[in-house]
Design a protein around this nucleic acid. Structure first.
Length: 474
RNA sequence: GUCCCCGUCGUCUAGAGGCCUAGGACGCUGGCCUUUCAAGCCGGUAACACGGGUUCGAAUCCCGUCGGGGACACCA
């Protein structure tokens, strides 16, 4: 590659950042980082009805949470600013005028109603609709009317094609192309036109986007040619499908919301890993951390087949990262989830210990926070079934014996605490389970928890003794 | 309907003519470990859509059929 690549992610700010967009952004970002290029964020905010500042923020926040940073874009005004299409309207006007002057585009003063009628008529006759070109050649707006700017598609037997970096050669005959609207009467560009003008004026070298845009590549290619510009390279990524096998969409699939997963306590590293493996692979590697992702990523191993969203694998990955990341790091991320659940988390909350104790049992930060409930409570509420089974006549002497040992224990740590359980089981001549379970129930309220020594260590001496007493007193 | 893309276990995928009696991962499942639950370890389940070619040889190349998805706006 002779020049450093410049790639972009160009979402329209009409809602939250969705998974498909995040994956597109990630692939582009990875490509830029891999080749020492530039990753640009551009807001295609030309849909006046649906674009909102809140959505812009939501997208920025989503990307930030995922750790996808941009070199140019909102908040990072570079040499190609501005990065909002509504601030670039003069450019679209300028190039539209040029094409009209050259006879490559024209003012179309057909009304929407007229177009709609013809379209319906064509449908009724089961005939593919095509603009019939009644306004072709029109270089001015007829008096008393408004007009859009329409591009004149080529006719004849030609074929247009491009070499997709993922899919290979893709072609389409001229006969299947149609005159399309570039610019509305109010000067707002439509997707194909705005996209081309911006990609060219921003010196984009490669356009990476979802396969739903394959067909729009052709009108865009026509535009590049008419304008005398060299088109960038294209790479079309497979789609991400919902459980119903349809394209993941905001409307039908709640899981399409990137930040939903953040709220669910999935680690961003896990979501990145999951999403990058949907469509891309590197041999048999499953858990791939950022540096490796950057080193290995390439379009040659992006597939052409759409992938189905698999929540099980996402949560599995989430746990992998819970175990992989430094405990202190996980602890810092866990804290808000504990606070959110009303737990009192003091400064010396031994959060890292909690992470160590639960990371093999929890798959998300939410699960971890839920599991940690008994760690931060004053006293504990006993599960009735568990209490009946373990705190009855058989359990009481065990609790008494354990309590006596604990009071005398000097080092309140996992190993000596485990040793206490062992000693008591030998003393009373019963299995370890007969000792650990009553203690576990008394201290956590339930039959399931980390190892007993670890459990007692986390809860702390004073609180453990208090809970033992409470269990004995019932 | 027209055009475009795709088609390996339920899901994500490895596979670029012989290394494939098709490998890995998730899930499901049997076992081991074990003071509970996990985690971990060992094992099992399960796929080249179909039909024709090309070739000594095809999951891999070609054609057709079928299937899935996407695009057909003054949305992006």
């Amino acid at each position: 590659m002779s020049q450093k690549p410049r790639v972009r992610f160009a979402p329209s700010p009409t809602g939250y950042l969705h998974i498909g967009g995040a994956r597109t952004a990630l692939f582009n970002w990875l490509y830029a980082r891999r080749h020492g290029g530039t990753f640009i964020l551009r807001m295609e905010d030309t849909d006046q009805e649906r674009s909102t500042p809140e959505s812009v923020k939501a997208i920025l926040d989503g990307l930030t949470w995922l750790g996808i940073d941009w070199d140019e874009g909102p908040g990072k005004e570079g040499p190609y600013a501005p990065y909002f299409q509504t601030q670039r309207l003069h450019l679209y006007r300028q190039y539209a005028d040029q094409l009209i002057a050259e006879g490559k585009a024209y003012y179309c003063s057909c009304t929407r109603e007229e177009i709609d009628e013809r379209r319906k008529a064509a449908e009724a006759e089961k005939r593919a609709y095509k603009y019939e070109g009644t306004c072709r050649g029109q270089k001015t707006v007829p008096a008393g009317r408004t007009a859009v700017v329409r591009f004149q598609a080529p006719s004849g037997d030609g074929t247009l094609g491009f070499d997709d970096q993922v899919l290979g050669t893709i072609t389409k005959p001229y006969a299947d192309m149609d005159d399309f609207v570039m610019l509305r009467a109010d000067g707002i560009p439509l997707y194909n036109f705005g996209c081309v003008v911006d990609d060219h004026t921003m010196d984009i070298t490669l356009v990476g986007r979802g396969q739903e845009h394959i067909n729009s590549t052709f009108p865009q290619l026509l535009l590049y040619r008419a304008l005398g510009w060299t088109p960038p390279a294209f790479a079309h990524f497979p789609l991400i499908l919902g459980p119903d096998r349809e394209k993941l969409s905001k409307r039908k699939h709640p899981e399409a919301d990137v930040m939903l997963h953040a709220r669910n306590g999935v680690l961003p590293e896990a979501l990145n890993n999951f999403v990058v493996r949907l469509g891309w692979s590197h041999g048999n590697e499953e858990v791939i951390q950022r540096p490796q992702m950057i080193e290995w990523f390439g379009f040659d191993h992006v597939g052409g087949t759409s992938g189905v969203w698999n929540p099980d694998k996402l949560t599995w990955l989430s746990q992998q990262y819970l175990k992989l990341l430094p405990p202190a790091d996980v602890a810092a991320r866990l804290r808000p989830f504990l606070l959110e659940r009303g737990m009192d988390v003091p400064a010396d909350a031994r959060l890292e210990q909690v992470v160590l104790a639960f990371r093999e049992r929890a798959r998300t930060l939410v699960e971890m926070a839920e599991m940690a409930r008994w760690v931060y409570s004053r006293g504990v509420s006993l599960d009735e079934k568990a209490a009946t089974k373990h705190l009855g006549p058989e359990g009481r002497p065990v609790l008494d014996a354990v309590r006596a040992q604990l009071v005398a224990l000097t080092a309140w740590e996992t190993a000596p605490l485990d040793a206490v359980v062992k000693t008591v089981s030998e003393q009373l001549g019963v299995g370890m389970g007969k000792v650990a379970q009553p203690v576990r129930v008394a201290v956590t309220g339930n039959t399931v928890s980390p190892g007993i020594g670890e459990t007692l260590a986390i809860v702390g001496r004073a609180e453990v003794l208090a809970r033992l007493d409470a269990a004995l007193a019932r």
